[in-house]
Nucleic acid binder design. Sequence first.
RNA 1: GCCGACAUAGCUCAGCCGGUAGAGCAACUGAUUCGUAAUCAGUAGGUCCGCGGUUCGAGUCCGCGUGUCGGCUCCA
Length: 681
Amino acid sequence: MTDISVILPDGSKKTLPHGATAADLALSISAGLAKAVVAARVKLGAKTEVRDLQAPLVDGAQVWLLKLDDKDAQDIMRHSAEHVLATAVCRLFPGAQVTMGPRDHGKEFYYDFDIGRPFTPEDLERIEAEMQKLITEDKPFIRREVPKPQAREEFKQLGQKYKDQILDWIPDDNVTIYQNHDFTDLCRGPHLPSTGRIKAVKLTGVAGAYWRGDQSREMLQRISGQAFTSKDEMTKHFAQLEEAKKRDHRKLGKELELFFFDPLAPASPFFLPRGALVYNKLVEYVRKLYVKYGYDEVVTPQIFDTKLFKTSGHYDNYEENMYFGYGGLSLRKLNGLIRQVAEDNKDNKDLFAKDVFGDSAEEDVEWREFGVKPMNCPGHCILYAHSLHSHRDLPMRIADFGRLHRFEKGGVTHGLARVRTFSQDDAHIFCTPDQVQAEIVSFVNLLDEVYRAFEFNDVRIRLATRPEKRAGSDADWDRAEKALEEALMGVKREFTFSPGEGAFYGPKLEFHVKDALERSWQLGTIQVDYVLPGPDRFALTFINREGAKDQVVMLHRAILGSLERFLGVYLEHIGGKFPAWLAPEQARILPITDEAMSYANELRARLLARGLRVDLDARQEKLGFKVREAQLMQVPFALVIGNKEVADKGVTVRQRGGKDLGFMAEDALTAFIVKECTMPG
RNA sequence: GCCGACAUAGCUCAGCCGGUAGAGCAACUGAUUCGUAAUCAGUAGGUCCGCGGUUCGAGUCCGCGUGUCGGCUCCA
């Protein structure tokens, strides 16, 4: 047998006996390294992959030995933790069916099981304790490569029925199997050398999850958890999580008296005066942009004859998410009518062979069915069709803060982020096909400006392309997708593709931002639509240069998206500390004694006259108490007035967070605060 | 919509094996005139989410409903 030689990261070569593994390599360098290394990244030719330490090395390969500080190594650790989890579950629940964990690991690992019943929190504790035991036992992960039929037979012997299905999707003739303790699993690997390399694990939750993510299949039980390279890291992580929970917008909304929910209007926020103030300031900000970017605002109806939604396609495609009603017809009355019909027709056996209220009902004014709008677009199509449009008038950009209602299914709502009633900074741009590109570029610039103003630095852009089920010609789609892509390239923004995730009428750009708990939410969007204005829907046209009618193109777009969702995500982003221009209360005057009260009142009146939102804390409390409350409400400026300030006609300014800005005479103060509270843009 | 958990004073939460409900903060009243994150004392406050069941007796156990939370699915 000839020796092999591998290249180390520093470029040096190392010669090893044939068949040597990465573990051998590590050992040949130092015993300490061998102890710390958990996996190897191997590059051979153009191909780089992460492998087990026990995998034999190949001559000429470049090798990096990975310790747990490496991101790939941590991924492997999480993956191994999944196997330990499954081992524990199989031990504690004989007969448990194991399925699989995630394809790509985030910070968490999870594994889906079927034990014929849900796991209880007590089960979870027992499983975690068992995992701890398995880790302490420090047993190796052993890799085997076997032909597929043999693997099938093995899992059959083990009574694992899901593995059979998983084997069906694997195209290769050979598959790999990993074993640790008495647990065997089909797995592509790689794994840590042994279970003891996992330094700390914590199970974080149990929840239902569908087999293969398909609602029509079995409901499995998903156990999720996290693995750490040290106990310290784990402690730190959960401390951070606690911090993040403090920034939960639902909690902040309550504490800062911004909004609340009531069971009589499920998932529909009530905005209190402070919340409404912020909400309206956001609208005001967007309105200012509309002037700059050439939008006209319109106000359109809330409720439409459902004929509109039949034309737009919502009646067929969005019915489940809509609210419907009839003028003056309550459920109580309807029940009475049904009883009446049944009474009148008690001898008519064929009654229910047709609709109870007959075909004519739909045409009868008394029976007109209405739908509450879930989107503004159908209404805007009516508005566009209301008058004739010349190519000279395009693009026509119409904005609408109309309130939308969507009947979201129970279990999907989430604070302000997913509600049943909301309004968007929504607009539709009607333009000629030639104008699409420029409109998209302009919009992306607009978004850039806005997200920068709100200091969202981590906005992820996704380009959702044509879905399988779609309307419109391929040529239209080519053009629309290209327009979106080129616009992004033009403004040099990074983005990822979401293949097949576009709307049925057109591709879209989605702008996503993460909340405090790392959940991603879509805010802005722009969509290119050739369908709604098309001949089968609203047939919207403009008069071209030749005097003939051409079909117009419709762009759907929103900047902040739903104002409710934006406010929720933004609240978490800033931890409740609104910039002064948005703060519901910009300054609070804190008189120390009653003697300071009359000057405090005068000052407040003068600041209010300058359009500032200033309150006066006239309660008979100590200064420390008032400062504390102003701070808890995140008021940007506390203006302290004692006898000294009364005499000198000014205030001592305390900035939110505790910074002392010292004494300011009234004129200087007014100039300072007015400047601090100026809306951007 | 699916799986699980939870629902007690305005808020945050305790309430054991089923025996007639409690704290802190807030509110109210009074005293205190105070210099940068909580002054003191007193008073009042409850459909224990709703409906039904088991029981001599239910905040507590069971069923159904509603809402919320964590996931899944969905999100034109």
